[in-house]
Nucleic acid binder design. Structure first.
Lengths: 341, 341
DNA sequence: GTGAAAGCGCTAACAC
DNA sequence: GTGTTAGCGCTTTCAC
């Protein structure tokens, strides 16, 4: 209960062996007499010894902990897939006996402080950066330190770094091409905020597919959404109020796609017939609503991020320091042949 | 860059003052000469000093960190609202200058080890327990330690502890009553796994409302789902294959409600007319699909959990050690008057 | 005001 | 094999 902490010293006094010997016996050194070890183990067990991890960390200059700072805003602004990502990162980490130190910090002036706190306060052995942005200052900062880190996403900072990313461009290209093959010519695009790197890749896939098939890329058909329900709704409204309405709409994430879907239904359109809709992510409800989408193996990405970082921390070199995963096109009923003009 | 760590000693040597004085100047003690402080501050700044948090923790016997162990399984088994909860916990925590140590550990034999690791390894100043279960052993364990902790959810362990929970029973009672008021008499219930406490409260609200309105509580109308899409689908199929089909279905969470909705639509039922459906949580897509549901202020609950725990850690007493929040009934179009027999 | 000394709990180098 | 000593970087008595 409120018992004073049991330390090596306690066991040392109890058994008569020195603190050093106790330490060695407990950490499994083999230059300890078998009998001694047994005595010490028994005592430790009896007294309920558990090593003080902080002390060990200070001594070893290693925390067995990695950091993750979630760039999230207030309520309802969180990607549901962050939990999936964290689950992947965390599960893999526990295989390595490491833990995750997590902070939540909205992008802005305090963000780098949060990074400094972890890095310069020597709280973590490595860091994972997620949701990259244009000229990402977090990455720039980390490059000035010697701390190992891996990034989920790419960024145009002019220096190379270790990352894993989904190939949004290739994915959306394939999806757009699929829509074109269904006869669609006017395809709207509800984008994520342009300062997010993935938004650009996805948009680019869309643009290229259009061009490659002789369709004009027209900014009128692009709406910059905010990744939330609201964004999808506003995007759908704007695109569907154009004189020459799109017959298909692509959204940069499923949440916006789903809400665009619902907006369209409200004004009487039948999805997959009057209007085709597709998203990106394949979050659980997408399946439920038969949304055509691109699946990101987000849990798996989390595992991979942990593994890569762990290797870096162990000073191993990565055989694949930059991984690009192709998302999988999942065709469901929200997309269909162009029937209207 | 790879520069050796700048410590108090470095500054001490650089300025000629003792380590003690440097420490006092930097932590803002006022018994340091103004001039001395300025010299030291300047040096610290110039050398890029940042305190080693691990060392400080060891000395202070305090980590400014709280722990959270996510009881989650593999991919696709994660409640999307965990990210919302974490965002709330984390954001509030940073207001207190504290961080969050997070582990992921599926329920099972290793789970308590994960708790012991945090608690007995003295890695955290307090702990948050989420998703309570019957006879929750995690809580039992924590009660044997002297570590402050708060729980999201209640449990029948026979001892009282600090918690915050949503009043699932009252919520579902109100919702069931609402359905009854619409004329529904045969109401199906897709439950969460019975070992989860919240499942029982919600089921109980349903049961009581039926009884109170003279409707038999019949276990045939209850299906134990697994909280995933699949559970909702199987639940809907089972319930809708009964000889006396329900005219309304309640689900213990939105994800199951949404997939039940979709299953029903597939066999030609119009939601809100032929069949009413309601859920619990109000996750983002629920809004989109006009699902009647009970809203849990999950982000806010996260904030509250942090605040409560912080107070406990500061040795303050809680004026409200056990909080029960009434969820808010959100009526949308998935529920309507009973039209069929 | 400032410094010397001790100690948080642990590990590691070196002796014996 | 085991103990002594030192030290990770910090804070905190206690002198002066």
């Amino acid at each position: 209960m409120m018992s004073p902490q049991v330390t090596l010293k306690t066991i040392s006094k109890y058994t008569g062996f020195s603190v050093t010997t106790v330490s060695r016996a407990l950490t499994g050194y083999n230059d300890v007499a078998k009998e001694t070890r047994e005595i010490i183990l028994a005592a430790a067990n009896k007294l309920g010894y558990y090593p003080n991890l902080t002390a060990r960390q200070l001594q070893k200059q290693r925390n067995d902990t990695i950091g993750l700072i979630l760039p999230t805003y207030g309520p309802r602004f969180n990607d549901p897939y962050f939990s999936e990502l964290i689950a992947g990162i965390g599960n893999q980490l526990s295989n390595f006996g490491m833990s995750l130190l997590l902070s939540v910090q909205a992008p802005g002036p305090d963000e780098i402080s949060a990074y400094r706190h972890m890095v310069e306060g020597k709280r973590v052995d490595g860091l994972i950066v997620v949701r990259t942005r244009n000229e990402d200052e977090r990455i720039k900062y980390l490059l000035t330190t010697s701390l190992p880190f891996v990034v989920f996403g790419r960024s145009n900072i002019g220096t190379s770094f270790n990352f894993i990313d989904e190939d949004g461009e290739a994915g959306v290209y394939e999806l757009t091409e699929y829509l074109i093959s269904l006869g669609h010519k006017r395809i709207g695009f509800i984008s994520a905020p342009f300062n997010l790197m993935f938004a650009n890749y996805r948009l680019e896939g869309y643009r290229k597919a259009l061009i490659d098939h002789g369709i004009d890329f027209n900014l009128q058909y692009v709406y910059e959404g905010d990744l939330t329900r609201k964004g999808g709704e506003l995007g759908a409204k704007k695109l569907l109020s154009l004189a020459e309405k799109p017959t298909a709409i692509l959204a940069s994430n499923d949440l916006m796609a789903l809400s665009a879907m619902s907006s369209a239904q409200e004004i009487g359109l039948t999805i997959g017939k009057d209007l085709s809709i597709a998203g990106f992510d394949d979050i659980p409800p997408s399946d439920v609503f038969s949304l055509t989408t691109l699946r990101q193996p987000i849990y798996h990405i989390g595992c991979l991020l942990s593994s890569m970082l762990y290797k870096l921390i162990q000073n191993e070199t990565l055989d694949e320091p930059q991984v690009l995963l192709k998302p999988q096109l999942i065709i469901r009923n929200s997309t269909g042949e162009r029937l209207v003009d």
